[in-house]
Amino acid sequence: MIRYISARLLATVPVVFGVTIAVFSMLYLIPGDPVKMMLSEFQTSPEQIARMRAQLHLNDPFFVQYGRFVWNGLHGNLGTSIRDNRPVTQEIFEVFPQTVQLAVAALVLASALGLALGILAALRQNSWLDIGSMMVATLGISMPSFWLALILILIFSLHFELLPAAGGGDLPHLIMPAVALGLGAAAIIARLTRSSMLDILRTEFVTTARAKGLRGRTVVLRHALHNALIPTITIFGLQFATLLTGTVFIETVFGRPGLGRLVVEAILNKDFPLVQGSVLIFALAYVVVNLVVDIVYAVVDPRIRYQ
């Protein structure tokens, strides 16, 4: 177990390295002079540009700059946003908890709904409930989350005036974003739970348990569910990561402060330090979530070994 975990941790290192290289290189790949872009809102003299270049150490070789980027990043310094003139890390961590809150809320909702629907559908395979709920699930996967968000606003804010349409903070502000974000994930979890339940229900030990005279419900709860949940855990992790990035659209629709909205605005504003910083944090969060999921998975199911 320890060996697996350390191997898994070790495997993360090159990934993180690659991520930082990619994020750092973005500044070199954009067409045009980043310094001019940074100063563009204000009248710029050649001296100002030269000063800014020196200030940012842009005349150093690529790897020196990259080294500095990583070093500063490790010290919590990801540069200064061009538009707000504030530290990038500060901007990110001001809003990041809200994004996590939204993603967690969406995941809780998606899991509850998805598991319930998936188990029910599997137990009543080929019934109308099964076919109907799987149709709904497929529709759920096919729906653009941002469009669903607008429809929710149309119904619950504009028509019934039940829920606030914009902003962050308290629970009423969280409901619609979490639903809009989580419904797609609920559909995926439902489909997966159903199929892994069906797999387990077909296996021998369930049949054996049934043959031994255990009643249906006990079989399901004791044996099938436990085993069926294992593959679903991976999906939870994967879905959580997807939900994190899904906030890109949802936060924009609901005007919620968060990392998703931050990254979109930074891209539209060509605020490159902020783009780099927020993309980096997004990617690292994703890596960490996947890492945790893999380890949890290994703990739950010791058969897994690192290949």
């Binding site: 090159p14 990934v15 990619a22 973005m26 990035t245 783009v275 993309v279 990617a283 994703y286």
Partner: peptide, 24 residues
């Protein structure tokens, strides 16, 4: 596979976002 792994470290939409921000 290392390259693929680190591309997978970016969730798809983020990768697309990053590329669009570079290309316009």
């Amino acid at each position: 596979m290392r390259i693929i792994d680190f591309m997978l470290a970016f969730p798809g939409i983020l990768l697309a976002l990053g590329i669009v921000s570079v290309l316009g």
